[in-house]
Design a protein around this nucleic acid. Structure first.
Lengths: 331, 331
DNA sequence: TCAAGGTGCTAATACGAATTATCGAGCGGC
DNA sequence: GCCGCTCGATAATTCGTATTAGCACCTTGA
């Protein structure tokens, strides 16, 4: 079209104009004009093959990116990711093609598309440990949203500071006079659960109180509530928002008053849809902020920016709520 | 390692063993063994470069893809798009970098990344006519979610069958005894509005009733309600769900009964957030299904599949609701 | 013994852009 | 007229894989 070589087009496209390469302004204009009228775009694949980057960030989730459930837990992360990517002029590639095998999506498979993008943001409650290890050892640029334990090396992540947030909530309960607190949930398994449990234990140990633990797996809300009352617990610290909702509703049906008879502290936002009008005391997970920062960290890694801290904990936002009250004085 | 050529490795890797290509079983085994021990994986980037397509589908929206507003209108489309893409093994590229100019996002601009994908799904109430024309004439593979008039040629689309759905609702009203029906809304402009208006007119014309039209632009709910009552309208057919909500609430505040005093029929789901406990009679837009089918059509076009119908109308799902009742007999 | 036909593999090339060494033109200065 | 220099643009190569024509070797049959 312009009677100019492919090399020149490439140079113009990339705005190269340093010491070694010079393009006459007139030629540059001609090429740019042709590009504008034809809508030509450099093939990202070829670009990546030749230059090793294409300004595309992959997003891998272990669940659908656009989930059906209302009030979806992952949505705010994606909002943050999109915002930051847009600001940085990066496009997002949703790695939706990852097939499900063994009950969950897998990153590595026959036709792994991960490397089509410059780097990748990983999203999910718990990431597969083997896959994580492989990513780390292969030196793939990626960031996990949510803290992860080392996996053959330190894992870059942007996580929520659950230990601090949980400890703060528990201290509030202690300050209100509670002495019998119980943790309702797994308290182990995914890092996010273990972190909450640690945050639960610390202030209790400091105060010389016994940390009780009520595992929720395979137990109905009724069983849990019974166990709580039987143990004389006055403040329940629930890992899963939805569990808190179930127990609170049940307690009310039984004529108990929340929080007068039982305080309930929720450790984060609902991960399962749970509708309630109860304003739980606890904290919010800075999801949008985490999404945003994960993209920041990823691009920092890609540019080998020495100032980038590859492991970040973002503080959670405390929620006063209405489910914490001093315990009833039981003689 | 195996003293075998790169071509042979490629052949083994892809399990090619058809008429033209043969690999000795012994050689194949040797290569496979080497692959296993080294953990070699073909570079997906180079693979795509050679294959000349990338199994990436672009998604262009005129609004943010991950919107902050709750109950977002576009979300279900994206759910369907993702589901279908996943099934087909395609990745999605969110074209988030489209800048806003002239008050809206534009597809074509200096740094147009549209062609970066194999094809593209277009989402938005109304697409720019000039841009659409350009897409058609340039022969870009794309599909519009929502019916579009010809733009320099037929536009591939997957739309909702508004004419039929609207006509069905209106016929229900006629069957219930209504004779004075009015269409509240634009009734023109975007194809989706014009289609509704057509569906509104047809059954009224057949029944020999006068189709009335109340444009909503720049008129408050109060003005609209006054106009309705003044004209003796007994059934209002509202284009915009949110308008229906506003009018219904106002009517109730004035002591009117919905639907006894005024029936209200909603032509689709809310495009603006509108909270209400009213169960409107009308229909639902098969958004997820439309998203799904749009990806089907797009891949059909890409594969030049002759069986693919590039223009589809998906039926809407009727909603019985509680805002339609026989009109009061006014002597 | 030689053509015909089959078998197993490789050399060469394409894919589309990025990069680099190099080439040619124009211009002063001597 | 020649050297040296700058400016502009290009030919050639690279990235890693897929594809295809074709080569060398072997077997078979007459």
């Amino acid at each position: 079209m312009t009677g100019v070589s492919q090399a020149t087009v490439s140079l113009v496209l990339n705005g190269r104009d340093d010491g070694n390469v010079r393009i006459a302004p007139e030629t540059r204009e001609r090429v740019l004009h042709a590009i504008r009228t034809t809508g030509y775009v450099a093939d990202p694949v070829a670009r990546r093959l030749a230059a090793r980057h294409n300004r595309i960030l992959g997003v891998f989730t272990y669940e659908p990116v656009f989930p059906t459930g209302t009030g979806d837990f992952y949505h705010p992360f994606l909002v943050g990711i999109e915002e930051c990517a847009e600001r940085l002029g990066c496009d997002l590639l949703l790695l939706t093609s990852a097939p499900v095998s063994g009950g969950r999506r897998r990153i590595f498979h026959d036709d792994n598309r991960l490397r089509l993008a410059d780097g990748c943001v990983l999203l999910g409650r718990s990431l597969d440990r083997d896959e994580l290890t492989r990513l780390v050892t292969e030196g793939q640029p990626f960031v996990s949203v949510g803290r992860r334990d080392d996996a053959g090396g330190p894992v870059p992540y942007v996580g929520a500071d659950y230990p601090t947030a949980t400890a703060t909530v528990v201290r509030r309960a202690l300050a209100a006079g509670h002495t019998a607190l119980a943790y309702l949930g797994q308290g182990a398994g995914p890092e996010s659960h273990a972190d909450r449990m640690r945050g639960f234990r610390t202030p209790l140990d400091e105060a010389g109180r016994t940390p009780r633990h009520l595992p929720t797996t395979d137990r109905s809300p009724a069983e849990l509530l019974d166990a709580l009352l039987a143990a004389g617990v006055t403040a329940a610290v629930v890992e899963e928002y939805a569990d808190g909702v179930a127990i609170a509703q049940l307690a009310r049906e039984r004529g108990l008053d929340i929080p007068a008879d039982l305080s309930i502290l929720a450790l984060g936002d609902p991960t399962r849809p749970a509708s309630t009008d109860i304003d739980f005391t606890g904290f919010r997970i800075p999801r949008r902020e985490m999404g945003w920062q994960s993209v920041e960290v990823l691009t920092g890694l890609l540019e080998a920016d020495p100032d980038t801290v590859p492991q970040r904990l973002v503080p959670c936002q405390p929620v006063d709520g209405a489910t914490l009250a001093p315990p009833k004085v039981t003689p």
